[in-house]
Amino acid sequence: MLSEKIVGIDIGGTKISIGILVNGKIEQFVKLETPADGTKEEVMQQIVKGIESLEGYEDAAGIGIGAPGLIDEKEGVIFSVTNIPSWREVHLKSYLEDHFKKPVYITNDANCFAIGVKIYGEGQPFKNVICLALGTGVGAGVVIDGYLYSGEVAGAGEVGGLPYLDADFETYCSGKFFKQINKVDGQTVFEKAQQNDPEALKMFAEFGRHVGNLIKTTIFMMAPEAVIVGGSVSNSYEFWKDAMMESVQEFPYKKVIENFQVLKTEMNDIAVIGAAALFKNRYEQDMAKAQASKAI
């Protein structure tokens, strides 16, 4: 029987976060510095060091990993991580599987966010859901029929790069909207909105309309049951939610959005939880495929 204990790892340019999770709950956690200027072997050795620092890692069913960038999920190869210069083609899956003798699954961090929310968070009631991480940029992940859909090199769902107005959706639906379009600090606007400043509230309303247009685009593409938003900009959700929903309600095919929902995730530590969820989802998917092939 598969152990419910899973190692979840989030690899960032400055920190590597590692947790041991049981049924989606973090039982142990460690955060290490990323040796970003080191060789790719030194970064991988730091990951091994972090895993082995956690008591009971030997009993885990396997390892799930989220990392930035493009990833060959089948082979477990990470390509070109911006903040880790030596990581240009890293065969992390085979390295860790050889070391720990356990299955390893890897995808990008936005996909981990999506499957984490689907399995352990607000996405549980839905089979088909899109998750949008609105922060310094726009990340997105797609779940179809209960399973994460990644596409080629884990690049599916990256709607932030779609052209929009004079730029793209990422420019208008992330922190860039405040910094680049309005030349203001987003945190300052948030604090002013909390004081009912009319200009700050107006800016958030405009932001909400842009996010609503992004969500309508995802509905045209995928017609999901729900879109779930997270990321640092979602902390101000209360100030742009209504404008966003007004925009969503303008979708022309009303039957499509009759039961459609937009939710904000309240999950903490979603990066590590999502990495563990990735392992669970992919392992179950592989087992289902194996059973189906036996039945043929």
Rank of each mutant, 00 (worst) to 15 (best):
V248L: 01
T217S: 05
Y253A: 10
T265R: 01
Q285V: 09
A205G: 13
N281M: 07
M287Q: 15
A288S: 11
V248H: 00
E206A: 08
S236I: 06
A226C: 12
G230F: 04
S247N: 07
I270G: 05
D286S: 06
L278G: 07
A271F: 06
I257W: 07
Y253I: 13
M221G: 00
D269P: 10
Q261F: 02
E250N: 14
E266S: 06
A205S: 15
F251Q: 06
A288G: 05
V248A: 00
F207T: 05
Y237R: 13
V211S: 04
K264M: 15
I257L: 12
E250F: 03
E246V: 12
Q261T: 11
S232F: 02
T218A: 05
A226V: 01
L263T: 07
Q285A: 15
T265E: 01
N213Q: 12
V229P: 03
I219S: 00
E225F: 02
V256W: 07
F260M: 06
A271W: 00
F204C: 02
Y283S: 05
G274W: 02
V211N: 06
E284D: 14
K202A: 15
G208H: 07
Q285E: 15
A205D: 08
P252A: 01
N281L: 12
L214F: 04
D242A: 14
V233N: 08
M287S: 09
G231L: 07
S232Y: 10
E258W: 02
E246K: 10
I270F: 10
N268M: 04
T265C: 03
A205E: 13
V211F: 04
E238W: 10
E206F: 05
F239C: 12
V262K: 11
